[in-house]
Amino acid sequence: MTKYALELNNLSKKYGDFTAVDDLSLQVKEGEIFGFLGPNGAGKSTTIRMLCTLALPTSGSAKIAGYDLSKDSGKVRENIGLVAEKLIMYDGLTAGQNLRFFGKLYGIPKKKLEKRIDELLELIDMKKWKDTKINTFSTGMKQRINIIRALLAEPKIIFMDEPTLGLDPQTTFSVREIIRDINSKGVTVILTTHAMVEAEALSDRVAIIDHGKIAALDTPENLKKMLSDTDITIFKMEITNLTVEMIENIKSLDVVTALSKQDEHNIKISAKGPDSLEEIIDTIRFDGGKISSIANINDATLEDVFLTVTGKEIRDTPAANSS
């Protein structure tokens, strides 16, 4: 029988007339790395805040580690850790003092806590910095401490909200390795990110969220297969409006999904159909068009899927607490 770390049923969150999370339903298996991917204001962080008991749902329900989010919030908190987008630490304290402070809040016995602190500092290769004040650390070093702070109480589930945001490539690589190590020890990881590479590299499954709703949910590979039957082809040629119209009316094609004139000599065509490329070439030649080059691309990326699902419009409208 499949065991679920998270079960969401029609979970929603409204701020006045604004719906930040809209009727969200999904399940996350124990031991998964599950990614929430979406544009700014899509509802990712609001979802995490609700699941971590930091915001009350407007409607719907959820179970976290088997406990009801509303009825057993205390039990939920006992089983989760949170790596928030903002660092949760005190600059005037050393790394060890910060971890002791939070460990005491969790009620971890002193002897066990010291052992746990040393184990976690070893995990992130920072044991030598145990007695150094946080305010001397780089952003990357602070984030590594921030991650293990969330692991002190040995949670079953850890939520990570944009864990590599603003980090340099080396630190980003290090944090991703830490996430994989945490997950290999049986901890379920719930990740929010804007980074396509991160979502694809880390996640067993990805939910693309847009306007508070799930727009797509599957493994990264299966999401990319959504576009795998599409030929994205760049033609360099002499083109007429009649040629464009004729291509759009090719009956043997399943669908011409996009046809846009890029300049006076180039058009970009996305089409589905087993013989789409040959049909398009024949049509162009029939109308007297001259083709000087063709570039055919068949391998869709997660970014292609993301832009197809969410569109290309820049999200400039502020949406409080809804990222």
Rank of each mutant, 00 (worst) to 15 (best):
T2A: 12
K3I: 01
A5N: 05
L6P: 07
L8R: 09
N10E: 14
G16S: 05
F18C: 06
L24K: 15
L24Y: 15
L24C: 13
Q27A: 06
I33H: 03
I33V: 07
G35F: 06
G35K: 11
G41S: 11
G41C: 07
G43M: 07
G43D: 07
T47S: 08
T47E: 05
R49S: 00
L51C: 10
T53G: 00
L54T: 06
S59P: 00
G60Y: 05
G60N: 08
A62H: 11
A65V: 06
G66C: 03
L69H: 07
L69K: 08
L69P: 02
S70L: 13
D72Q: 15
K75L: 12
V76K: 14
R77Y: 07
E85D: 06
D91E: 13
D91F: 00
G96W: 15
N98Q: 01
G103K: 12
G103P: 03
Y106R: 14
G107W: 13
G107E: 12
G107D: 13
I108A: 12
P109R: 14
K110W: 01
K111Q: 08
K112G: 00
K115Q: 10
R116L: 01
E119G: 01
K128F: 00
T132C: 05
T139E: 11
Q143A: 01
I147L: 14
I147H: 14
A150Y: 09
E154V: 01
P155G: 05
I158N: 07
M160C: 10
M160E: 03
E162W: 09
P163K: 11
P163N: 09
L167I: 11
V175G: 08
R176C: 00
R176S: 01
E177M: 11
I182F: 10
I190V: 14
T192G: 02
T193D: 03
E200Q: 10
L202S: 05
L202M: 10
L202V: 03
A207M: 07
K213W: 04
A215R: 14
T219V: 03
P220E: 04
N222F: 01
N222H: 12
L223V: 01
D229R: 12
T230Q: 09
D231E: 00
T233E: 12
F235L: 02
T240A: 02
M246H: 12
L253V: 07
D254F: 05
L259E: 12
L259N: 13
S260H: 14
K261T: 10
E264Y: 09
G273H: 09
D275A: 09
D275K: 15
E278T: 07
E279M: 01
I281V: 14
D282E: 11
I291M: 03
S292C: 01
I294F: 08
N296I: 04
N298V: 00
A300S: 13
D304K: 10
D304L: 06
L307R: 15
L307E: 14
T308C: 00
T310A: 03
T310K: 05
G311D: 11
I314A: 14
R315Q: 15
N321I: 00
S323T: 04
